[in-house]
């Protein structure tokens, strides 16, 4: 007769709290909530802009409230965390052949950071901020 298999108890909703690595993993995954909510809020902004002057002012008041600013700052932090974690694993997603080997990982990661900086500058320049 076989014994009952050993099943380690894992709390279903709080398992990641045991370990900093798991917490960082969950923070990375949760970045999608902020990115999704931001995309939705920007879409609402477009709708308000299309509706007219008055509605646009209401929208501006909303995003200028302390809650609005706090959300934007939090979303900014999570979005940056998404970018960093995304770029840091790019060497594992793309293997670029070069000569007898491959382009070294750090070069691929650096290239992504440079493009990130250039894209951000272009956006700021096009909006007339810089």
């Amino acid at each position: 007769m076989s014994r009952n298999p050993y099943v380690r108890e894992v709390p279903r909703t709080t398992w990641y709290m045991r370990n900093n690595r798991y917490i960082r993993y969950m923070l990375r995954e949760v970045s999608c909530v902020f990115i999704g909510l931001y995309a939705a809020s920007l879409t609402v902004g477009l709708v308000r802009l299309a509706q007219g002057d008055n509605e646009w002012t209401h929208y501006l008041n909303g995003i200028s409230s302390p809650t609005g600013i706090l959300f934007s700052l939090l979303a900014f932090g999570f979005a940056c965390y998404h970018s960093i974690t995304w770029f840091n694993v790019t060497p594992r997603a793309m293997r670029i052949p070069k000569g007898d080997g491959f382009v070294p990982g750090p070069a691929i990661v650096s290239a992504h950071y440079i493009i990130w900086a250039v894209v951000s500058l272009v956006f700021l320049l096009m909006m007339g901020v810089l």
């Binding site: 920007l42 700052l73 995304w86 894209v119």
Partner: peptide, 25 residues
Amino acid sequence: CAFVIPVMILITGVLLPLGLFGPPE
């Protein structure tokens, strides 16, 4: 998202409400 969302949040979520694009009109 990794390339554009941070700078977009900065522009539309921080600089726009701070009035960098002028008053609402």
